[in-house]
Design a protein around this nucleic acid. Structure first.
Lengths: 174, 174
DNA sequence: AGACCATACATCGGCATCGAGGTATAGCAA
DNA sequence: TTGCTATACCTCGATGCCGATGTATGGTCT
C-alpha cells in the first residue's frame, strides 16, 4: 500500500522525501499514520529495485534534499499494479482507497472499468460477520446494539459504494 | 487487533484453535484473511502472558485439541482494552469494527458511551485526502471521477456512522 | 484400495512496520 | 544565548505478520 502510494504520488511530479511524507499523511495518515522508519526504507527499496532515482539537490535547507524521480520502470510498475491489483487491494478498504486515488493514471477507461467491476464483485459476495453454525446472523437478530450497528453500518457503506460504482461504470461507457 | 478478537471470542465461551480460526475468518477474513502462521503464535503469546490457558482434550479427532480458556487476567485485559482503546482502535476501520463486535462485554453503559463518543470525535475531525498547499480540496473540484468518488464515499460512510452513533448514544442514556 | 479433503496443530525464514533515537541547519522568540 | 520548532534525512532493534511447509488422522467419493 505504501509502495503503491509512493509510486502514485511521484507519477504526478517529482517530490523529495519530506513532501512525500506530507502527501501520505493527508491520504492515509488520518487513519493510520506512517512513520519515518517505514517511509525511508520503503524509498530505499524502490530505489534498489530501480523504480525511482534520487537526485541530490544542494538545497538551501539543512539536509541535502533528495528529489525522487520515477523511472520508466517505476511508471510501468505503477500501471501494472493499477491494471492488475492484488486481491487485498480490492478487499481491504485502506488499500482500495489508495488504489482509487491513483486509478486515473491508468489512462484506459476499459481497464479502469475492469478494476471497478472487481470491487463490485467483491461487494456482491455474501458475507456476514457472525454465524450460528453455517447460518449468517442478520442485523435485526441482535439485541446487542453494537453488533447490530456493525452490520447496519457495513450495509450502508456497501450500498453507497455500490451506487457510486454503478454510476461511474455507466459514465466510463461500455 | 488479532489479540482483541481472540480475547473477545473466548470471553463468550472456550474454543479450540480451529474454531477460533473460523470465527476470525467470518469476522475479518472477508477483508483480510489471517493465516495459521499468525494465529498460532498469537495464541502462544497470550498463553505466555497468562491471559489464557490450554486444556488438552484427548479428542476423537486427529491432533489433540487444545481448548483455550480465558483466565481472570485475560478477562481483565479484554475489559481494559475495551474501556480504554488505543488511538488506532478508534481511527482504523478494521480495528474499530473489531472493537464494536465485543463492546457488549463491557457491561457498563457509561463506559460504552464514552467509547462511542471517542469515535464520534474522531469522525468530527476535519480531514481531507488531498490538499492544495494547506487548503483541502473538496469532492466537487475533482474532474477525476475516482478521487471524487473516494471523497463522496468517505463522506457517505461517515454520515451513516454518525447517525448510528447519535441514535445509540441516546439509547444508552446519559 | 487409492485419492482427496477437512480437521487440527505447529514451525520457520523472510520481510514490513513501528517507535525511538540520532544528526544537521535555519529561523524565531524569550 | 538558550530553547523551540520546522525542515530533512537516516538507522536500529523489536515485533508481528505472511506464506510455505510439515505432521497427523478421519471421512467421503469413486
Amino acid at each position: 500500500m505504501l509502495k503503491l502510494a509512493i509510486l502514485g504520488f511521484l507519477h504526478d511530479r517529482p517530490l523529495h522525501g519530506y513532501e512525500l511524507r506530507r502527501h501520505l499523511a493527508a491520504l492515509t495518515g488520518h487513519v493510520r499514520p506512517i512513520s519515518d522508519g517505514t517511509l525511508y526504507p520503503a524509498i530505499k527499496r524502490l530505489e534498489t529495485d530501480g523504480l525511482l532515482v534520487r537526485e541530490t539537490e544542494p538545497g538551501t535547507t539543512a539536509a541535502p534534499r533528495h528529489t525522487l524521480h520515477l523511472t520508466a520502470a517505476g511508471r510501468t510498475a505503477l500501471l501494472d499494479r493499477l491494471r492488475d491489483p492484488e486481491p487485498l487491494d480490492i478487499s481491504d478498504e485502506n488499500r482500495w482507497f489508495t488504489l482509487l486515488a491513483f486509478l486515473r493514471h491508468l489512462d484506459d477507461p476499459t481497464a479502469q472499468a475492469a478494476v471497478l467491476r472487481r470491487r463490485l464483485a467483491f461487494l456482491a459476495e455474501p458475507a456476514s460477520f457472525f454465524y450460528d453454525g453455517d447460518r449468517p446472523i442478520g442485523a435485526e437478530e441482535f439485541t446487542d446494539p453494537f453488533r447490530r450497528g456493525l452490520l447496519l453500518i457495513a450495509r450502508a457503506t456497501t450500498e453507497a459504494e455500490r451506487a457510486w460504482l454503478d454510476a461511474t461504470l455507466a459514465e466510463l461507457g461500455g
